[in-house]
């Protein structure tokens, strides 16, 4: 097997692919909540992805990738048998939800990739969590079968109602809480505006909330400061101190502004691949 070879690739939803990558050194110490940084080729950018799954025996690490820009499009064009140029990890700190008993996992869009290993692990620990998965429509929802299997209760909610339930994850959380569900922790992962909305809601109900911050990164080990964000008035690095933080302390508006820092250049890079005219 080649170093960092893609052993298998499957499409989980529209523009979302799961890759199983041969990387025994990463698999050896990987744990739920950590991430890897990869480069597709020698001229590639370093991009972070959550470790979705791993097998220490097979020496594999799985990542779930949503096509949003240059590198993720390049990845979409890669297949089993191709090898990535680089694949480093596991980076960041593993999730620690051991202090909580009744946990609600909330995933928005590709955020499902981050809560999936948690759902699996919590089930294995004998305290399965409830899961709320939100997607724009049902064809974009990922790991639905797996969540149905590992969750105590699994709720799928879509923006357009194509799953049978229409609305945002916050609507679902509120419904559950009002129904009398008592969670001592919400673990929410998804686009920044979603995490911000969830935190605003759970703050009202006084439920401790953990979020996973997907800041822009370069090295992923604390050497550049690119991934910094403000948590409880203090500057923290998503890669070294996180990626998980107390959601009620995170300055989301700043994080949202920072996530747009390179928007123009990113757009130009995408156009290079698609031949589209720069917007």
């Amino acid at each position: 097997m080649k170093k960092y070879e893609i052993l298998s690739k499957r499409t989980l939803a529209e523009r979302v692919n799961e890759y199983v990558v041969y990387a025994p050194a990463v698999a050896r110490h990987a744990r739920a909540g950590q991430f890897v940084i990869l480069r597709t080729d020698e001229d590639g950018e370093r991009v972070p992805f959550t470790v979705c799954d791993y097998s220490r025996e097979e020496g594999t690490v799985s990542v779930l990738v949503q096509e949003v820009g240059y590198t993720t499009m390049k990845l979409a064009a890669m297949n089993a048998g191709d090898a990535l140029a680089d694949f480093v990890g596991p980076l960041g700190n593993p999730t620690d939800l051991s202090a909580y008993k009744r946990i609600l996992l909330v995933g928005g869009g590709i955020g499902g990739a981050v809560i999936y290993p948690q759902a699996k692990q919590l089930a294995a620990e004998g305290k399965p969590a409830d899961v709320v998965l939100g997607a724009r429509n049902v064809s974009l929802a990922i790991y639905t079968e797996e969540f149905a299997r590992f969750a105590d209760n699994f709720y799928l909610i879509t923006d357009d109602g194509s799953s049978g339930k229409k609305g945002f994850v916050t609507d679902m959380i509120e419904e559950l809480v009002k129904k009398g569900e008592k969670y001592d922790c919400v673990f929410a992962v998804g686009p920044l505006p979603m995490m911000k909305a969830v935190c605003a809601l759970t703050a009202r109900y006084d439920i401790p909330t953990v979020v996973s911050m997907n800041s822009l990164m370069v090295d992923g080990t604390g050497m550049c400061g690119c991934c910094r964000l403000t948590v409880g008035g203090k500057v923290r690095y998503a890669c070294a101190h996180g990626p998980e933080f107390d959601g009620h302390q995170v300055d989301f508006d700043e994080a949202i502004a920072r996530s747009r820092m390179y928007r123009e250049q990113e757009q130009a890079h995408i156009c290079r691949l698609t031949g589209e005219v720069r917007r």
Binding site: D43, G44, E45, R46, Y70, T71, V218, D219, M223, C224, G225, C226, R228, L229, T230, V235, D251, E254, A257, R258, R260, M261, Y262, Q265, E266, H269
Partner: peptide, 28 residues
């Protein structure tokens, strides 16, 4: 933490390691 404020390490890493000075670079 405003956009446009970075460490020298970040600027230099993007430019030297990631070759962001080149027109065809992928790293912004």
């Amino acid at each position: 933490t405003l956009c446009g404020v970075s460490s020298a390490n970040e600027l230099l890493t993007r430019v030297n390691l990631m070759k962001a000075y080149r027109e065809d670079a992928v790293t912004p």
